[in-house]
């Protein structure tokens, strides 16, 4: 149906068509994403408020719903300050390098069956590679600001992000083993069948149950990778004010802000795709679809906000210990367990 409608347009535009069609799809992903980012900030303030027995933002618009718009306008009209001793070029490259990977990674996330911008076979590798360059934005910002707090934040962040990338990568290896594919759509399809899925209880066939320890490691490492509470030593307010973004103002600060929240939604989407069955419906009698992915992403995002309101900040040495001495060995052991399990007659992955 879609192709019949598109064919005349394709003929008319000729060789430019693939470019325009891809651009249109990128816009279709990014505009809702940016709206979600705006309302995630609102939702975070509301949830934190309720957990602190406060009301939260409720002044701008009905129920405070226009608050993110007001915040955005305020940031947009603020002066962009360039410190006198800062590195003039790199100071502005930093925020761009922070937000670009956060948006580029959405290219391979499947929203529903076949709804993906780039259905590439090396999707997981692409996510790991682009995810690993997100740290440059923070390091460059910290160095280019020429400020002690900013530099301390950058140093903490690069150590933390590299440590937890190792745990996240190793956690994904078990997922790749059981789905024997690097394609994200194939990983979701792999979770659609199994003993429980045949019984109509699909949510027990998803990867989170057989890979439970790995799921926990991935979820917690995701929070650490996002530099969010309780792993927010990078921008710990009471220690180094705002870490790498202490010198930024106006839109250049807003870029870091957008990058952080876009990354939050992205990590939630990755957890949903790898462990929670992506767009699959939890029970047999309801149809699959994008709705379920949205529900799962929202649930994981709520988890992120919940632990921010609940836990005190980790100490730096505790973060390093958790990453290297607990998570990395745990994932390595589980890779072995999954390998033996897959080769044994008790295997549930065929």
């Amino acid at each position: 149906m879609m192709n019949a409608f598109l064919a005349p347009v394709q003929q008319w535009l000729g060789p430019v068509f693939p470019l325009l069609w891809t651009l249109l799809k990128i816009v279709l992903i990014l505009v809702p994403l940016m709206l979600s980012v705006a309302y995630l900030t609102f939702w975070e303030r509301k949830i934190l408020g309720w957990m602190h027995v406060r009301i939260g933002p409720n002044r701008v618009g009905p129920w405070g719903l226009l608050q993110p718009i007001a915040d955005g306008l305020k940031l947009f009209f603020k002066e962009v300050i360039l410190p006198k001793v800062a590195d003039r070029k790199l100071y502005f490259v930093g925020p761009v390098l922070a937000i670009a990977p956060a948006l580029a990674m959405w290219a391979v996330i499947p929203f529903s069956d076949g709804w993906v911008l780039a259905n590439i076979d090396a999707g997981v590798l692409y996510l790991l590679a682009i995810g690993s360059i997100g740290v440059y934005g923070i390091i460059i910002a910290g160095w280019a600001s020429n400020s002690k707090y900013a530099f301390l934040g950058a140093m903490r962040s690069s150590a933390q992000m590299i440590s937890y990338e190792v745990a996240m990568g190793l956690a994904l290896i078990s997922v790749l083993m059981v789905s024997s594919s690097l394609n994200l759509s194939a990983i979701v399809h792999g979770q659609a069948h199994g003993y429980f899925a045949a019984q109509g209880m699909g949510f027990l066939s998803w990867n989170w149950l057989p890979l439970l320890p790995v799921f926990a490691v991935y979820l917690i490492s995701g929070v650490a990778e996002l530099n969010r509470a309780p792993f927010d030593v990078v921008e710990g307010e009471s220690e180094i004010v705002a870490g790498h973004m202490v010198e930024y103002s106006g839109m250049s600060f807003a870029m870091f802000f957008l990058a952080e929240y876009a990354n939050m939604i992205l990590v939630a989407a990755m957890v949903s795709v790898f462990f929670l069955g992506g767009w699959l419906s939890p029970v047999g009698f309801l149809p699959d679809g994008f709705f379920w992915l949205a529900v799962k992403i929202s649930a994981v995002l709520f988890f992120f906000l919940w632990i921010r309101a609940t836990f005190p900040r980790y100490r730096y040495d505790q973060i390093m210990r958790l990453g290297w001495k607990v998570f990395v060995p745990l994932t390595l052991v589980w890779i072995l367990v999954v390998g033996v399990w897959m080769m044994s007659p008790l295997t549930i992955w065929k």
């Binding site: 790991l128 360059i133 390091i139 690069s158």
Partner: peptide
């Protein structure tokens, strides 16, 4: 050679050069 390309970014750009820059 997509595996080599992505491994180059993951290993060199994502890890080695970060420490080097550091």
């Amino acid at each position: 050679a997509e595996f080599l390309a992505i491994a180059l970014i993951m290993v060199y750009v994502g890890a080695v050069m970060v420490l080097f820059l550091f």
